[in-house]
């Protein structure tokens, strides 16, 4: 298994270097923004002055930069097919579970290392920005690591199953696209529900205070924003209450995908429809 882990790291090293360079360059940028705020060079950013600009920059650096860490995810199943390594590894003295397990382990190691590095950077940012570290950051970072790991192993499965780069990419795109659409629809309903509640509240307030809507001290948009934040807060609380259930569910699903991937890898190379003309990785 160690050999496969080393192989995954070697193949991904260029991407790791680019991701690390991007991450630290952006972090430096956020720190420079803070220094700029100290000297008052950033004025009405977000319409509220230098302190607000610094705060916004801080939260963006702590949470937004997590997205950059996705570059440390390992998924070389496509390039394994292109290079015919997937055929060579069938001649190695390793079981399919060891092969898939090694890839999962490599992922776990790199994602964990990336998140730990980000945790360290967050402590540094807290010191520079003068904002206290909050315990829930740990939960957010851990949740991020678990979610990214889970979706990565899900997107690897189509490559093991179809042994075709085109089909693997298509299936992975459909899966991730489906999740994106699902989240978009969920957010749409959330926003719509908040807007609906805000609209009903505004009408009720106008009737109660016996004034026109335009004369009310609060706008419908502001109310909708508050309802949305409140609903998201409730959802977050619910998710946090049931976080162990989600963790167990994610672990079980990951285990399921692991066994399915190992089984797919175990199948004879000619057990899938052969790749089309000229596509690499086909067994002649």
């Amino acid at each position: 298994m160690k050999g496969i882990i080393v192989k995954e790291l070697f193949i991904s090293r260029k991407r790791f270097c680019i991701t690390a360079a991007t991450y630290f360059t952006l972090m430096l940028m956020w720190i420079l923004v803070k220094m700029s705020c100290l000297y008052g060079n950033i004025g009405k950013y977000a319409g509220k002055g230098a302190d607000e600009a610094a705060k916004t920059t801080y939260y963006f650096a702590v949470f937004g930069m997590l997205v950059v860490l996705i570059g440390f995810v390992i998924n070389n199943t496509g390039s394994d097919i292109m290079s015919r390594w997937n055929i060579y590894q069938k001649t190695l003295p390793m079981t399919s579970k060891q092969l898939v397990g090694a890839v999962y382990l490599a992922n776990a190691v790199t994602i964990s290392a990336a998140v730990l590095t980000h945790l360290l950077m967050t402590f540094i940012l807290c010191a520079i920005f003068g904002i206290g570290f909050k315990a829930f950051y740990l939960e957010v970072f851990a949740a991020f690591a678990v979610i990214v790991f889970f979706f990565n192993v899900m997107s690897m499965y189509p490559f093991y199953r179809f042994r075709s780069v085109k089909k693997g990419k298509l299936a992975a795109s459909v899966l991730l696209g489906g999740i994106y659409v699902g989240l978009y629809i969920a957010l749409y309903f959330f926003v719509n529900s908040s807007a609906q509640k805000a609209h009903e509240e505004i009408i009720r307030l106008a009737q109660e205070m016996n004034v026109k809507i335009s004369k009310l001290p609060v706008t419908e948009d502001k109310l909708a924003e508050e309802y949305l934040l409140r609903d998201l807060g409730k959802l977050t609380d619910t998710l946090l209450d049931f976080r162990w259930l989600f963790l167990i569910g994610a672990a079980l699903l990951t285990a399921g995908v692991f066994f399915m991937s190992a089984k797919a890898l175990d199948r004879p190379m000619d057990d899938t429809k052969p790749a089309k003309n000229g596509e690499k990785g086909a067994v002649s």
């Binding site: 070697f10 390039s79 394994d80 290079s83 015919r84 390594w85 060579y88 001649t91």
Partner: peptide, 14 residues
């Protein structure tokens, strides 16, 4: 055993 194929089965970046 060792297998030798007609095409190199290793990644080109290695």
């Amino acid at each position: 055993i060792a297998a030798i194929f007609d095409e190199l089965p290793f990644h080109e970046t290695l």
